[in-house]
Design a binder for these strands. Structure first.
Length: 841
RNA sequence: GCGCCCGUAGCCCAAUGGCAGAGGCACCAGGUUUAGGUCCUGGCCAGUGAGAGUUCGAAUCUCUCCGGGCGCACCA
């Protein structure tokens, strides 16, 4: 397309519109350069925000500024922009903001390598990406742009931290934490994947550190309950992942008394989901790394426990995660009393019990829990079946039975066959005897938010010897980062901020004495948990956001982004929203009404990666095929949720189609403004049907099918021009203009160029959605099929409003049907007018 | 181990219980063209992973199996 386009380029640049005779293609790059400045001067995507039209908030996950945009950005923005532009055409007042999630490690690492400030790398990349977004023609409102690393932004991140702390939702505690030895920082539970650092892939180790947490566990039940509002509007799998992550389980706390070596009795509580199997609890297991293990351990077993603990610590999380790993453990030399039968049972320590789930201690019921059974068999501990499921006794088979069955050796429960009743009755009895209570346990842990890195929002706390932890007063926010760069930022295992002694040394806001600033910064997920609120009033100086502006725009009507944020970002944002609701700052509890997770762009069946050498460069694709062809390829590839394999696609084909559509705009010979009434009816019907169907498809996010429908309309219009009603027919103009408006959602440059050739002023993006004439959606006749025994025997042209009775009569009179029936007796007739008759003989 | 999703032409994908094919890629042929490409027209190609069930009727609903993908995972 570039080879022979000299002439056309001149034509395009002169703006006089080439004729069909002169050329059959347009110069893509020239058209892009022609319209960009026009759009920018029109500023056509800034919402009026005056209530004149219904508001809609189109939100896309803001990018992290690492290098230039890549194929993934191109996909998500293409899909997102279809919706935003559709809403504009439908007459909504659309807010479609863009910003950058601009704190984070890559910038810091780059700064160390290049001996500069992280801001240098960060803001240079932001400018590169911003320029690419503009070239890509995304309908952003640039006036709302924000960067989380700007002091005007993180001032409010810090402000929110302090409000959370006032409510007891931000606190510091000393405990074992996940530590990434490469990034030299702690990680949230959510950032550890398969025992590795989610970011760099290094094996995560444990450290005992004093760290800041958000009390997200206080909101576990509400995070779960409010998902009811999202059902059907968020992808099921995301909801499933969140539910899974929150991990609610119902069960009971049961108290066991342990007779300590000292002669004292210590009451220890276990969590179990199967209190009904309490009679089968034949030993207890304490998490080896829990304090409790050492506390209850008999003196003569202490050495064995310490040896075991040393072994456990040597094993990494990776080893721990290996399945089918043999059970290990150590006998603590004390016994506990089973509260339901008074039996003395052994107390062991093992690493298969987790210190930070439930109470860190379990009652082991080997007959009905495979892990407990494996442990019992490894150490020759008793196994007692208390539920007879009809399967082989676990004691012999080595396979624990977990299903329903008849209770045996279980006191009052004996003979019962229903698990739910068994559980309920046991809890009742435990509560009556004061040995335990029914309870709910969550897998969700509190969110560890402090990081020992530089490029993040400083935690606005001062440590004073006299007053302890003191909040930085609101009027002293933001606590700005000191000017550190290059080697100053090298990871040392403590925050680089600690090295900035002038910065650390401060005075206590409370007593005025000498004090030290907290040297940790916040996880960047804190920044991204509220940016969608800030967009509503990005310049607001009285708070993180103007509550009135948020009331007008939030919750976001549609959030578009990658499924990689299915847990972390979305859970945290939901948590923030609920807390802000409880603070009276928001009148809703869920921030994102609907969620669309686009698939990934892959190549040759695999994720693009440097090591595989299968990366596709977005800039090169755009240079080769143009912005519109790349966008169209992304949108047309398949359902938005599916992965796109670039190797399966044809940007060349997309370009071919765009040229084909563009050619139509030059064929139209009627004047702009020509009344389509009286135009070719068949073509008008095709046009109006396409619009009606496109509406349904767009509402259902079935953009690929919408594109196919536009292609069909282009095809029938082509035929109408060449061998039908001819280019002067008003229906041809109507069809071409409709194609242009529909294409404006996907291919803005081509559409704008077509719009001009059709005699209109920019911008087609705001011209409005075509009005569907219902009369043109009705066919003169439709094809009804007649089946005999479910096999098609005849096709009939009938009126679309034919009645069931009439259709049956016509069908039965059809000679082909009569032949097929062959005089057999009709037993049943199914009529679905006007489409189908099925005769059962 | 628990949970979820997906198998339709050579390929990407339509068909929301009613004629398996809308659209595209690739391929083939004809027209246009000095030629190639572009462009226009036409064509080729599967019985829906396998089996069973429900139904007048199943790609679509149910079950089992096979194949592929994803999430969580010693979570008591």
């Amino acid at each position: 397309m570039h080879a022979d386009s000299q002439e056309e380029q001149q034509v395009a640049e002169s703006g006089t519109g080439p004729t069909v005779e002169e050329t059959t293609t347009y110069e893509v790059e020239a058209v892009q350069q022609k319209w960009r400045p026009v759009w920018e001067s029109l500023d056509c995507f800034r919402p009026a925000d005056d209530g004149s039209r219904e508001r809609r908030y189109a939100l896309t996950m803001f990018p992290y500024p690492s290098g230039d945009l890549h194929m993934g950005h191109a996909e998500v923005m293409a899909l997102h922009d279809v919706l935003a532009r559709y809403w504009w055409q439908r007459g909504y007042d659309v807010m479609n903001p863009i910003g950058w999630d601009s704190f984070g490690l890559p910038a810091e690492n780059a700064a160390i390598r290049r001996d500069e400030h992280p801001a240098t790398y960060t803001y240079a990349n932001i400018e590169t990406q911003a320029e690419s977004f503009r070239r890509y023609g995304v309908s952003f409102d640039w006036s709302r742009r924000l960067h989380t690393s700007d002091p005007e932004y993180y001032r409010w991140t810090q402000w929110l931290f302090l409000r959370f702390r006032e409510r007891g939702l931000a606190y510091r505690k000393f405990s074992p934490v996940n530590w990434c030895p490469v990034d030299q920082t702690v990680l949230a539970n959510e950032q550890v994947v398969q025992g590795m650092c989610e970011r760099c892939g290094a094996e995560v180790t444990k450290r005992e550190l004093s760290q800041w947490y958000f009390k997200v566990t206080d909101y576990a039940q509400r995070l779960l309950d409010d998902m009811g509002q999202l059902e059907g509007k968020w992808p099921d799998r995301v909801l499933a992942m969140q539910r899974n992550w929150i991990g609610r389980s119902e069960g009971a706390h049961v108290d066991f008394d342990i007779a300590l070596a000292s002669g004292e009795t210590r009451t220890v509580t276990v969590f179990t989901t199967r209190p009904d199997t309490l009679h089968g609890a034949t030993f207890m297991v304490v998490a080896a790394d829990a304090k409790l293990a050492a506390e209850v351990c008999a003196p003569e077993r202490r050495e064995a426990l310490e040896d075991y603990l040393a072994d456990v610590r040597r094993a990494s999380d990776i080893d721990r995660l290996a399945t089918d790993r043999p059970k290990s453990g150590v006998d603590l030399g004390v016994t506990a009393v089973n509260p339901v039968n008074g039996e003395q049972i052994a107390v062991w320590a093992s690493d298969y019990v987790l210190a930070d789930y439930g109470t860190g201690v379990i009652m082991a019921v080997p007959a009905h829990d495979q892990r407990d059974l494996d442990f019992a068999r490894a150490f020759d501990l008793p196994v007692r079946r208390v539920v007879d499921t009809g399967e082989e006794n676990p004691e012999e088979s080595g396979v624990a039975t977990t299903g329903d069955g008849t209770y045996v050796s279980s006191g009052d429960l004996d003979g019962l066959t229903d698990k739910a009743t068994g559980i309920a009755r046991t809890i009742e009895k435990l509560e009556a005897d004061d040995h335990g209570t029914g309870t709910v346990n969550f897998r969700l842990r509190d969110w560890l938010l402090s990081r020992q890195r530089f490029w993040g929002a400083p935690i606005p706390i001062v440590h004073c010897e006299a007053c302890g932890e003191v909040a930085v007063p609101d009027d002293q926010l933001p606590v700005e980062l000191p000017d550190l760069r290059g080697a100053d930022l090298k990871p040392k295992g403590t925050s680089p901020l600690a090295a900035a002694e002038d910065w650390v040394a401060t005075t206590c806001p409370s007593c005025g004495g000498p004090a030290a600033r907290d040297t940790d910064t916040m996880d960047t997920f804190v920044d991204s948990s509220w940016y969608f609120l800030r967009y509503c009033s990005p310049d607001f100086t009285e708070g993180p956001f103007d509550p009135e502006a948020v009331r007008r725009w939030m919750p976001a009507a549609q959030y578009v982004g990658g499924v990689e944020h299915a847990i972390l970002h979305l859970l945290y944002s939901r948590f923030f929203t609920k807390v802000l609701h409880d603070m009276g700052m928001l009148d809703f509890v869920e921030p994102f009404t609907a969620l669309l997770n686009q698939g990934q762009v892959i190549n040759q069946g695999k994720a693009m990666s440097k090591s595989l050498g299968n990366g596709v460069n977005l800039g090169e694709m755009i240079d080769l095929y143009g912005v519109d062809a790349v966008r169209l390829t992304m949108v047309f590839a398949g359902p938005p949720e599916d992965d796109i394999d670039w190797a399966d696609l044809s940007p060349q084909g997309s370009l071919k189609f765009l040229q084909r559509a563009w050619r139509l705009s030059g064929d139209v010979t009627s004047d702009a403004g020509t009344d389509p009434a009286g135009g070719d009816t068949a073509l008008r019907k095709a046009t109006h049907k396409t619009v009606a169907e496109a509406e349904q498809l767009l509402e259902g996010h079935r953009f690929n099918v919408m594109v196919a429908r536009v292609m069909e309309l282009v095809n029938v219009t082509r035929k109408a021009v060449d061998s039908g009603c001819g280019p002067a027919d008003p229906a041809v103009r109507e069809a071409a203009e409709t194609v242009t408006v529909l294409l404006s959602l996907v291919a803005p440059y081509t559409a704008e160029e077509m719009w001009e050739r059709l005699g209109h002023q920019p911008t087609v993006a705001r011209t409005g959605w075509p009005t569907v004439d219902p009369a043109l959606l009705v066919d003169d006749s439709v094809t009804a099929i007649v089946q005999v025994q479910g096999k098609v025997k005849a096709r009939l042209d009938v009126a679309p409003d034919i009645s069931d009775v009439d259709l049956e009569a016509v069908a039965l009179a059809d000679p082909a049907v009569v032949r097929a029936l062959d005089g057999k007796e009709i037993r049943k007739v199914i009529v679905r007018a006007p489409k189908l008759v099925n005769l059962v003989v």
